[in-house]
Design a protein around this nucleic acid. Structure first.
Length: 301
DNA sequence: CCACGGCCTGATTC
DNA sequence: AGAATCAGGCCGT
């Protein structure tokens, strides 16, 4: 089955920057469109003048439009956010370079798993590993002649266990994924509840997991749990803060978090994303399009 | 509390 | 070519 529909969008929206910017790892370019998986729906999105054309394998009655509007955070008034943040010159540069760059509201479990995998890695490799995991453990989905797989539930990670996840190229992150999956599956970690929880509480709950520190917790909170005040500091952001703002390079994570909160306020997460894109673009011609060569499991197990 | 080495692995650099 | 080095961190000492 193929559903075709259209979502009207009056907000600024740059699908390339938003879907291929390192927030999400499973979008693939297909001609002018992007193909990805939301829950158990495979979706193909193409920008039009008035909005987004949508193709999906699920019925319209499943409110696929609503799901995509939520995913793209079209409920955020981006022009107002940009006006507020762009009083800062470097954020202003980022906003002018990528006026349609939005934050996403992703599935918390997939986001947590993705950023556990991000540790000492890079975007193309994270994307390939996520895909290999989904292809191996997730439910198959079809849209036209495209086959993708749903991102597997925590229970599937628990069943797979550390050994199989190592075979799936997760490396030293494999036991971290199993522990996180177990915490979610048993209910010890109620991810959805962290949406409403105060930032500090959500941070404590996430960073209690092995393999999840301040940076990964901030990514999960920002990209999936509506905590727009989260300001993940990775190497790139650190570079921007030191080079452009004169922040002492010896500042520790906690000090950088406080600095960002003071400088950018409750929308620091949006500022973070514009800074991230801006500094990466200024240091490199292009962010690598996710997925070059497909990855295979280890032989012999 | 801080500094430092080690960790899987694939790509890039030397 | 084969060996170091580096990549969107985190953990233990």
């Amino acid at each position: 089955m193929t559903t075709r529909t259209h979502l009207r969008v009056s907000q600024p929206l740059d699908l390339d920057a938003t879907l291929d910017g390192g927030q999400a790892f499973r979008w693939r370019r297909d001609g002018d469109a992007w193909v990805g998986v939301l829950g158990s729906a495979i979706v193909r999105l193409a920008r039009t003048d008035g909005g987004v054309d949508i193709e999906s394998d699920v019925p319209l009655a499943s409110d696929i439009r609503g799901a995509i509007a939520s995913y793209l955070r079209l409920d955020d008034d981006l022009p107002a956010i940009q006006r507020e943040l762009a009083t800062d010159p470097h954020i202003g540069d980022g906003v002018r370079a990528f006026p349609g760059l939005r934050l996403l509201r992703q599935d918390p479990w997939e986001t947590l798993a993705g950023f556990i995998l991000s540790s000492t890695s890079n975007i193309p490799r994270i994307a390939r590993t996520m895909e290999l995991i989904a292809d191996t453990l997730g439910q198959p989905l079809e849209l036209g002649d495209t086959t993708r797989h749903a991102f597997p539930a925590p229970e599937a990670f628990v069943r797979a266990g550390e050994t199989q996840l190592r075979d799936l190229r997760c490396g030293f992150r494999a036991p971290y994924l199993v522990a996180a999956a177990r915490a979610v599956a048993t209910g010890d970690l109620a991810l959805e509840a962290l949406r409403e929880a105060p930032y500090a509480e959500a941070l404590a709950a996430l960073s209690a997991l092995p393999g999840v520190g301040d940076k990964i917790a901030d990514c999960v909170m920002l990209f999936s749990l509506d905590h727009l005040e989260a300001f993940p500091v990775d190497r790139w952001i650190h570079r921007a803060l030191v080079d452009w703002y004169g922040v002492e390079s010896t500042f520790r994570y906690e000090a950088l978090r406080d600095w960002a909160a003071g400088r950018f306020g409750p929308l620091a997460g949006y500022a973070n994303q514009y800074l991230f894109w801006h500094i990466r673009q200024s240091r490199r011609p292009m962010i690598g399009a996710a997925l070059t060569k497909p990855l295979a499991p280890k032989a012999g197990s």
